[in-house]
Write a protein that binds this DNA or RNA. Structure first.
Length: 829
RNA sequence: GCCGAAGUGGUGGAAUGGCAUACACGCCGGUCUCAAAAACCGGUAACCUCACGGUUGUGUGGGUUCGACUCCCACCUUCGGCACCA
């Protein structure tokens, strides 16, 4: 690959890189004293699951983070950039079932491998703060958070239909089900009626939604996803009196304006009143069977919009409060028990689902909102009219627009006490139980006498036993660990048993960013004062795949900790950056697709700086990008070019300090240099535009070469020395090893990361003579060179005297003469 | 269906009301060399023209403006999220 002749043209990355990696570590460049540091900057990357080997696609996240951290360091901040491992979870356990290697062993091995990969990338962290979620000194505090939630009634156990992955043999949170399939293994998810632990995240739904507005520095798409997931609906909850009973049936509607058009009621098959309503009906048994049939279909299957609507008449009626009409009550498969009150008023004329149902069961359809443009006729309607319109058949509300009626009817309902305004959310409580081994045990004890008892804080952690048969059976493997299960009741001291489910790993990852601040505290999860000093996180960087799960759960846990006085802020992440993924052959890089590119091979061939530079140059970092091996070579060539430039300038000898009497070319290079500083700094401050940052540094390198080509004596000039120094400094955050080395080559003693970022000089950017494009009727025709401070009149005269302009104008009359100062001239003829 | 993001050379992309295609990849040519590689220099949107130069051109169709990749309206396509949520 590298023959003798080319050898000396390259830069010796294989020597440079280990040298500086050691230097940074020996000099503790990335270690921060969180208690005393001023001008803090908390740069956080989502901590990874420890997997066997990282590919260049994974690398993007860490390289971006490292570049940000190093840049902020050069801007004078005390940058905290910690790293840890989200170390509990299914893959290690599944691998263990296959290979027989204990999850702890494989996890800790993988962590070691990953750390050495970070090291080779030149990605540095404050390793004194490493957090590993599967170690007892960490999960002790995960359990502590559970206990605090339990204390406040926000962790509770209930029997519920839950998502069950038959392959992973565990339950899943709603957030972990994607297209009816397990997020992890893609098996089709089933429903099971199980008793499980939940966190009451729904209690925080209004705040989680409202505070999204505070997250001004989050990507819009992430905020939208969270809004959709929380899913707010405003409407009215109506109490319908059941005919022949004192009982009421509550239902939620967002379209109270259509109340006069309600022609039937529909309740979910699971509705608690269903059994009672049908009691005594003459074909009670048949109805019961039909309801049972609906319940037997899995909820997920049932919630598919394409499933045929099914229903059964209960034989009972409710009274419509506005007009006293008797409305039949149906049990229907399209009603979800979890949303609203599990019952709806059906308005077939103005809701497509109700329309379909009414057509099938031949129920009446009453039009109450008419289309002002094309008046409707029920007999001709092929689908529900769901738009706004004019109220008809609606008593005193006739004639007004439906949007106005929406409020008036709601007011009327509240005045008459028929119902009340209400807000509903789609968000469901967070199911945290898992019937698996490799997770944090839920700190609960069951006593025959005292019932469910929380493990006292002093007894934490509830240790995960090491030797357990963890083959998945559908029941928690811990159930079969006798020593683990048997416990003393903390209340009465009697024999009791432990909860054997473990916690969802998203609980572990919902608070790790707090632990980094004071990672060694052993009497509490973190020190509040220090955490309040460092958080919210200044910059969070990670993949968009966590837009809902991790980011929503972390926001919830932070708000909870805020409410119990453990932290002073209620949003954990001020700035969020979600990087795009790296594709190869058009698809996401992954081991299963067989299209991964190994960083190790590339680092051996080109060095880490080349891989880093290419990764940052590949495109806008928030967008997906296609990996190109040719592009890597281009990055490598560029670094070689910079290296040779620095070498030539260094060899040229002592720098003349004066920058007076500069040649025209030198002035031009100096201007370019200051423009580059301006552009690079602006592009970094205004977002992470690494691709344009690098291209503008390339331009400066090209111009420096141009000057050398034009004037060999320029190599030794002050301007050239300055330019080279600037190039090295601007490149440092991206290609740290070669930058440190070149920095030393030009005689600097300090680490470049303890040297200041360059400032641009306004005066050096100003040009005396500027080129002004001249347009005629908006089309570029020529350019004129004029002094910067030329007066409009003089400019006009000069432009009109230009022979090209004269030709173009010809005999035409000038209608307008537009001058954009220092930018452009446009003549309209 | 609803919400969000995007659409620019052969390729990745740059320019957010003022010179479209910076920078890089690829390709073509030159210098050096016995030769090659590397390096350095130059060219590279399409069409017309020997050339000078001109015309067209940022998904499509309209509009605003002296001037539009950029703003407005309508649409098409791709990607991502949500979806029987009353």
């Amino acid at each position: 690959m590298q023959n003798e002749i080319t050898e000396d043209k390259l830069f010796p990355f294989d020597k440079i890189e280990p040298k500086w990696q050691k230097f940074w570590r020996d000099n503790r460049l990335f270690n921060v004293d969180t208690a005393n540091a001023k001008d803090k900057y908390y740069c956080l990357m989502m901590f990874p699951y420890p997997s066997a080997a990282l590919h260049v696609g994974h690398g993007r996240n860490y390289i971006i983070g490292d570049a940000v951290a190093r840049y902020k360091m050069m801007r004078g901040y005390n940058v905290l950039t910690p790293m840890g491992f989200d170390a509990f979870g299914l893959p290690a356990e599944n691998a263990a079932i296959k290979s027989g290697i204990h999850p702890e062993t494989s996890t800790l091995n993988n962590i070691r491998t990953m750390k050495s990969q970070f090291n080779r990338w030149g990605v540095e962290y404050d390793w004194d703060r490493e957090v590993v979620s599967c170690l007892p000194d960490y999960y002790k505090w995960t359990q502590w958070i559970f206990l605090k939630l339990y204390e406040k009634g926000l962790a509770y156990k209930k029997k519920a239909f839950v998502n069950w992955c038959p392959s992973c043999k565990t339950v899943l949170a709603n957030e972990q089900v994607v297209d009816n399939a397990c997020e992890r293994c893609s098996s089709e998810v089933m429903q099971k009626d199980l008793e499980q632990w939940f966190f009451k995240i729904t209690a925080y739904a209004p705040r989680l939604l409202k505070d999204i507005d505070k997250l001004t520095e989050w990507p819009e798409r992430v905020k939208t996803m969270q809004r959709n997931w929380i899913g707010i609906s405003r409407g009215v909850e109506i109490d319908f009196k059941i005919d022949g009973s004192d009982e009421k049936l509550a239902c939620f509607t967002t379209r109270v304006d259509t109340i006069y058009g309600a022609t039937f009621m529909a309740i979910a098959p699971e509705h608690p009143m269903a059994q009672r309503l049908i009691k005594g009906a003459k074909d009670e048994l048949r109805i019961l069977k039909e309801i049972q049939k609906m319940r037997d279909v899995s909820k997920i299957e049932r919630s598919d919009a394409n499933v045929e609507k099914e229903g059964a008449f209960t034989g009972r009626y409710v009274i419509n409060p506005v007009n006293g009409n008797k409305i039949p009550i149906y049990v229907a498969n399209y009603i979800l028990m979890e949303y609203g009150s599990g019952a709806i008023m059906a308005v077939p004329a103005h809701d497509q689902r109700d329309f379909d149902f009414a057509k099938k069961y031949k129920l009446p359809i009453t039009l109450v909102i008419d289309d002002p443009k094309n008046p409707l006729n029920v007999a001709d309607m092929k689908e529900a009219y769901v738009e706004e319109g004019v109220m008809v058949n609606s008593g005193e509300f006739n004639g007004i627009s439906s949007s106005v009626a929406m409020e008036k009817v709601a007011d009327y309902f509240e005045a008459k006490k028929f119902g009340r305004r209400s807000t509903q959310y789609k968000l469901r409580d967070w199911l945290i139980s898992r019937q698996r081994y490799w997770g944090a045990p839920i700190p609960i004890i069951y006593c025959d006498k005292c019932g469910t008892v929380a493990v006292p804080e002093k007894d934490l952690p509830v240790r995960l036993p090491h030797d357990v048969e963890f083959r998945p059976t559908g029941e928690s493997p811990l159930k079969f660990a006798k020593d683990f299960v048997s416990a003393k009741c903390p209340k009465c001291g009697g024999a009791a048993t432990r909860e054997t489910d473990t916690m969802d790993t998203f609980v572990d990852s919902s608070w790790y960013y707090l632990r980094y601040i004071t990672p060694k505290t052993s009497d509490r999860p973190f020190d509040t004062a220090t955490v309040d000093k460092w958080l919210p996180v200044d910059q969070y960087i990670g993949g968009v795949e966590h837009a809902i799960l991790h980011l929503l759960y972390s926001r919830f846990v932070t708000k909870f900790l805020h409410d119990i006085g453990c932290v002073g802020f209620d949003e954990p992440f001020k700035n969020l950056f979600t990087q795009g993924m790296i594709t190869k052959n058009g698809v996401k890089m992954s081991k299963s697709k067989g299209n991964t590119v190994s960083p190790d091979d590339l680092i051996n061939e080109y060095g880490a700086d080349t891989v880093r530079l290419y990764t940052l140059f590949i495109g806008p970092p928030e967008k997906d990008a296609e990996w190109s091996d040719k592009g890597v070579e281009g990055a490598f060539r560029f670094l070689g070019r910079v290296w040779r430039l620095v070498e030539s300038v260094r060899k040229s000898g002592v720098v003349p300090v004066t920058s007076e009497n500069l040649s025209k070319e030198e002035i031009s290079l100096k201007r370019k240099m200051h423009l580059t500083i301006k552009k690079v700094t602006g592009d970094l401050e205004g977002g992470f535009h690494f691709n344009t940052v690098i291209s503008s540094i390339m331009e400066l390198v090209n111009e420096s070469y141009d000057l050398m080509g034009k004037n060999i004596n320029a190599i030794g000039s002050a301007v050239m020395h300055e330019s080279v120094e600037t190039i090295i400094t601007l490149l440092a955050p991206f290609v740290p090893h070669i930058s440190e080395e070149m920095w030393q080559m030009i005689g600097k003693k300090n680490s470049i990361f303890r040297s200041p970022w360059p400032e641009f000089d306004k005066d050096a950017i100003v040009e005396d003579i500027i080129t002004i494009p001249v347009q005629i009727n908006g089309k570029l025709r020529t350019k004129v060179e004029v002094p910067l401070d030329i007066k409009d009149e003089a400019l006009k005269e000069m432009v009109l005297a230009d022979p090209k302009v004269k030709t173009w104008i010809g005999a035409g009359a000038i209608k307008k003469f537009i001058i954009v100062p220092k930018k452009l001239v446009n003549i309209v003829i």
